[in-house]
């Protein structure tokens, strides 16, 4: 099943439709999480990430980066003559680790062998490997939720109220990319745009943008929570 962490459900529809969740050959529940509650509950801090849940409702693999197909961006040549900032962005994207083949193979192994799969973890291991949570990261979650709530419920100054609390969430938990990317996209995408602005140059609103924070975190090599297979 898929879950889109997106405060605006309508932003997800074209992607959900493209995945054809009703196609009998690939039928799957295709859901939307408008509150990012699955991030809080499972530990999703970026996308794509995944958890594995067995037939009894027990998590057998904690949240980790879940690419199953190598992105063509990893292998693209950075073209000459593009602005330096764009060059930096593409260079860091290419540096993001790729474990797609291994992760996909692990999923297949678990699907076929269940609890006998070496990739299916014990409950103690699942808990121990789950994301650390301290007061700052928990407080960031509360701040994000407060911003989301105010944005959804206030008529006039909802955006301003949300930005204030989302800035605080970003400060408290700089490694949570879903909080950042959600906020940046809403800041830089025109209300009537058909597609999100994925460059996310939201510095004027949030102080930093995607590439600023990727570099601050050590570059693309440290951008994802890689699977420990």
């Amino acid at each position: 099943m898929t879950v889109a962490l997106d405060v605006h459900p309508e932003h997800t529809h074209r992607w959900i439709d493209a995945a054809r969740p009703d196609d009998p050959a690939a039928a799957h529940p295709s859901l939307i999480d408008t509150r990012h509650v699955t991030g809080e509950l499972f530990g999703f801090v970026n996308i794509p990430m995944a958890v594995w849940i067995d037939e009894t409702g027990t998590i057998v693999r904690n949240a980790e980066s879940a690419s199953i197909e190598r992105s063509p961006l990893r292998d693209m040549e950075v073209p000459d003559g593009i602005p330096e900032r764009m060059r930096t962005m593409l260079t860091e994207v290419k540096a993001i680790p790729d474990h797609a083949d291994q992760y996909r193979a692990a999923i297949v192994d678990w699907a076929e062998n269940g609890s006998d799969s070496p990739y299916a973890l014990t409950p103690d291991d699942v808990i121990a490997r789950s994301q650390p949570r301290d007061d700052a990261t928990a407080r960031a979650t509360a701040c994000f939720e407060l911003g989301r709530h105010l944005r959804a419920t206030l008529d006039d100054d909802g955006d301003a109220a949300a930005i204030r609390w989302w800035k605080e969430a970003h400060r408290l938990d700089p490694s949570n990319w879903t909080y950042k990317r959600q906020a940046w996209t809403l800041a830089t995408t025109a209300p009537d745009a058909e597609e999100n602005d994925l460059v996310q140059e939201a510095g004027e609103v949030y102080g930093t943008s995607w590439i600023d924070d990727v570099l601050a975190g050590g570059g693309g090599a440290h951008y994802t929570l890689e699977p420990d297979l």
Binding site: T38, F42, P48, W52
Partner: peptide, 10 residues
């Protein structure tokens, strides 16, 4: 079995 995959449009 459930493979719960998180994604987003952004």
């Amino acid at each position: 079995k459930v493979l719960l995959v998180a994604w987003s449009s952004y």
